[in-house]
Design a binder for these strands. Structure first.
Length: 690
DNA sequence: TTCGTGCAG
């Protein structure tokens, strides 16, 4: 039973958003501003129609004359996190794709996708010579700048959802600011939430460097506010802070179910563990108190679920049932579910940060920003008026930051520095960032790139290694590994390992209680040398299964969606290498002498060491790991084969601190002398420090 | 004995 009733534990907020209007009436004003100002900042909520309507307005107004095109960058393309569009387990992938923006706009324009309206994402370019409006990811547009530095094909570039401040959005905005100086004809549209619009305005109207002809900021950029079409949302706060937000969230679900009208519930929690617990607790209580709580259908939603499991949240609940979806931040912006009337917001999100001193990433639950809080609340008002229950006090809300620090200020910058250098921006420190990253992050990244020999003594990109590393779509350490693989005669295997590790740990999956079975399955592929070779074995087995692959995955607790993605990534990496004139000799693992296999395994491990020497560690007598400097105590992640096994020196793909502990993942045994061979200078410096 | 979410012609 709930400890508090709704009426006493929540107090309503004073302000309600008013009902909002459609975009059409702003058309003429928008076109006028875009014509008159190089940069237009558009404020518009989800549902305002900005993404679908503005490109059409522009096209009709003649912005595609002389073969120019309109580019619209998108943070996401479908209803689902990426992958489902391609997964063969979905019988009608195109139907899901039909929800993408490009398809919607093509439909409105009355053309086929890929003709006048097209889109381009990794692995899928649906554009043609007829394309005038092109939706693409911001990362891809940055890559286009490698070939066409002034992005001269575009008359207008619209950066959608810029307020989300992903690293690639930030870099793209910096590039566009630079390009604008050389291309006065280019029009830039930045779509943003209200809170961040000023910051974008300031960014485009101030100059960081000396400028020849001083221009007033007023002539460069203008903000246009489009009111969106949403329904009013009542926001309610706790009177006193919750001691345990998870329990409070569950109680609130039951309160809503018994006291409020129809409509599904969306609950924001921070991670899988909390979500599984909440789903289980609610279903147990529904079972026990069937009379009162019958008709509640709890569902989990997080990225680690298989596509079938994610599908359930979109299904209509059975008659007389109320869906309650317990979700991570994935439902804040990436996934939109219709029919949500009630939102419960725990007030926390897990955020990644990167410590340049240790090179260790952390993942910790952090209070959300006001911007996030309003985004979460907005999920309730998409189909009719809704309510948002915030599991914190109004005072707590007031103390939240306006926005969380942008990604570029809390990430490993090595990949982005490599790209900037490849774009000809050698002075990466003085690049015009929307939010400059801390200098420690810059230094750490430059050091790493130097030790990988991607940069020379003058911090210039090396040829061909550095340029090739920038072009490969994997992180620098893996790029180096791939480009060394030919000399270790294991390129085919390294390509597979690169594709598998870039899946980020979603290879094996299991449901609660299924874990033992998963581990038994995994043992079939296990290699004594560690996780990388185990991943190689799993992939090799997978690709020989042909039409039975899906069945094979199901039997072996492998994530089919991830495996098919690995196949695509590997093919793409191979195409890059072929462009570099590096031949990939495909070797099949069957019919090998045991000695050959051992020999190859050693070459693979040596090759991995050539890229991952900075991620080396030694096992201590107590079974934990220390890096070369001996500082941080690290544990093998329970998902690793090296968990509870003996080893001496190892290299690992990733290190992450969560809660109290620091874990390393994707671990392979190596010999200490290989480290000295791979990076003599790196280890000389480290020894001196120690 | 465990991990927010994306993305790369």
């Amino acid at each position: 039973m709930a400890e508090f009733s709704l009426d006493t534990s929540f107090i309503p907020a004073l302000h309600k958003p008013s009902a909002l209007l459609p975009i059409a009436k702003y058309r003429d004003n928008l076109l006028y501003v875009i014509e008159s100002y190089p940069v237009t900042i558009v404020i518009g909520q989800t549902g305002s129609g900005k993404t679908t309507q503005i490109p059409q307005f522009l096209e009709k107004a003649g912005w595609c004359a002389n073969g120019k095109i309109i580019g619209v960058t998108q943070v996401r393309f479908s209803l689902f996190p990426r992958g489902i569009l391609y997964a063969d387990d979905n019988p009608q992938p195109r139907r899901v794709a039909a929800t993408t923006v490009a398809l919607r706009v093509a439909d409105e324009v009355g053309c086929e996708v890929g003709k006048e309206v097209g889109y381009s994402i990794r692995f899928e370019d649906v554009t043609s010579s007829a394309t005038r409006v092109k939706f693409l990811t911001d990362g891809l547009l940055i890559r286009e700048a490698l070939v066409d530095p002034l992005l001269s094909r575009y008359s207008v570039i619209m950066v959608d959802e810029a307020h989300e401040r992903s690293i690639s959005t930030d870099v793209l905005l910096g590039l566009l600011k630079k390009i604008r100086k050389k291309r006065p004809d280019l029009r830039i549209i930045v779509s943003s939430a209200t809170l961040q619009a000023e910051a974008f305005m300031n960014f485009f109207t101030t100059t960081s460097e000396e400028q020849t002809s001083p221009v007033s900021g007023d002539e460069i950029a203008k903000i246009v506010n489009l009111e969106g079409r949403t329904y009013p949302i009542d926001t309610l706060y706790l009177e006193t802070p919750a001691e345990n937000y998870l329990r409070k969230a569950i109680d609130t679900v039951f309160d809503i179910h018994t006291q409020e009208g129809e409509g599904d519930i969306l609950v924001f929690l921070t991670g899988r563990e909390e979500i599984d617990y909440a789903v289980q607790t609610v279903s147990e209580r529904v079972g026990q108190e069937a009379d009162q709580f019958a008709g509640l259908q709890p569902l989990p939603l997080y990225a680690g679920l298989s596509s079938e499991e994610q599908m359930y949240v979109f299904d209509k609940p059975p008659e007389e049932k109320r869906k309650v979806i317990f979700s991570t931040n994935i439902a804040e912006a990436s996934v939109t579910i219709d029919g949500i009337v009630y939102v419960i917001d725990c007030g926390f999100v897990k955020l990644r940060a990167y410590n340049p001193k240790t090179g260790i990433e952390t993942l910790t639950a952090t209070p959300i920003s006001k911007a996030s809080a309003s985004q979460r609340a907005g999920r309730a008002g998409r189909t009719k008026p809704g309510k948002c229950f915030r599991l914190y006090t109004e005072q707590g809300y007031q103390s939240l930051p306006e926005a969380n620090p942008p990604e570029i200020q809390r990430s490993n910058l090595a990949p982005i520095i490599l790209q900037l250098k490849a774009l000809g921006i050698d002075n990466v420190v003085r690049f015009d960032y929307l939010s400059p990253p801390p200098s420690e992050l810059m230094c750490k990244a430059l050091e790493l790139l130097y030790s990988l020999a991607a940069l020379d003594d003058y911090a210039k990109l090396t040829r061909p290694l550095g340029f090739r590393m920038a072009e490969l779509a994997v992180e620098p350490m893996m790029a180096k590994t791939i480009l060394s693989a030919q000399s270790f005669d294991c390129l085919s295997e390294i390509l597979t390992i690169a594709a598998m590790t870039s899946l980020g740990g979603s290879v094996w999956f299991y449901h609660d209680g299924d874990q033992k079975a998963m581990e038994i399955s995994r043992r079939k592929f296990a290699a004594e040398e560690g996780d990388h070779l185990t991943l190689l074995n799993a992939y090799t087995a997978f690709i020989t299964k042909g039409k039975k692959a899906a069945h094979f995955c199901h039997e072996n607790h492998l994530n089919y969606k991830s495996m098919t993605r690995a196949v695509s990534i590997r093919a793409q990496l191979k195409r890059y290498l072929e462009r570099f004139k590096i031949e990939v000799k495909e070797s099949l693992a069957s019919n090998r002498l045991e000695e050959d296999v051992k020999n190859k395994a050693e070459r693979i491990r040596r090759c991995l060491t050539s890229g991952y020497f900075a991620h080396a560690a030694r096992m201590q007598p107590d079974g934990t790991f220390r890096n070369v400097e001996g500082g941080t105590v690290m544990h093998a992640h329970p998902s690793s084969l090296m968990f509870n096994r003996k080893a001496d020196w190892v290299i690992f793909h990733e290190v992450m601190e969560t809660g109290e502990k620091t874990f390393i993942r994707d671990i392979t045994k190596i010999e200490k002398r290989w480290l000295l061979e791979a990076a003599p200078e790196f280890y000389k410096v480290s020894d001196a420090r120690a």
